[in-house]
Computed example of a mutant assay.
Amino acid sequence: MNASCLTIKELTDAVGGGITPRMVRHYHQLGLLPQPVRSQSNYRLYTQKDVIRLQRIVALKQQGFQLNHIRQILEVEPEADTATLTAQLQQQYRAVMQQISQLRQTASALEGLLGRDRHCQIMQAEVLAQLKLLEVETQAGLGGLEKLWSGLDAQVHTHSEAFVESLQHLLPDLSQRSEIEQHLISQLVLACGDVSLVSFVRLSQDAIAASREALKSECDIFVDIPTVAAALDQTRLAHLGCQVTTLIDNPHVTTAIEAEQEFWHTQKWQEKLQQITKGCVLVVGYAPSVLLSACTAINKQKIQPALVIGMPIGFSHAPAAKRQLMQQKTPFITIEGTLGGGLLAATSLNALVESLIEKPHCHCYLKDNIVPI
Rank of each mutant, 00 (worst) to 15 (best):
K300M: 12
V127M: 01
S101T: 12
P319V: 07
L282C: 08
L352K: 02
G143W: 11
A209F: 08
L325V: 08
Y46M: 03
G17N: 10
F315C: 04
L128W: 08
L349V: 00
A209E: 06
L352P: 06
L366S: 10
S355Y: 15
E111F: 05
N369V: 11
V164Q: 15
A83P: 02
L188V: 00
L103K: 13
G314E: 05
E111I: 05
V284E: 06
A162R: 08
P312E: 07
A59W: 13
D368A: 14
Y93V: 04
H317V: 09
Q327W: 08
L356K: 05
P360C: 09
R104A: 01
K272Y: 02
Q261L: 02
V37R: 13
G342Q: 07
T277F: 04
R177S: 12
T246L: 00
L184V: 03
A229W: 02
Q88V: 12
S178Q: 11
A140N: 11
K268D: 14
G340I: 10
I309L: 03
E213W: 08
I370R: 11
R323G: 03
Q91I: 12
V228Q: 07
S348I: 05
L74E: 06
T254A: 14
Q121N: 07
I122H: 13
F315H: 01
M1H: 13
A320P: 04
I185R: 07
E262K: 02
L11F: 04
A214S: 06
I370F: 13
E126M: 04
Q91S: 12
L184M: 09
A107R: 09
A95P: 01
E135R: 13
G193M: 00
C364P: 14
V15A: 03
K322S: 02
F65E: 01
I73H: 00
L145C: 03
V223L: 13
P288G: 03
I333L: 11
L167A: 06
D50P: 06
G31Y: 11
Q324M: 10
A87Y: 00
R38M: 15
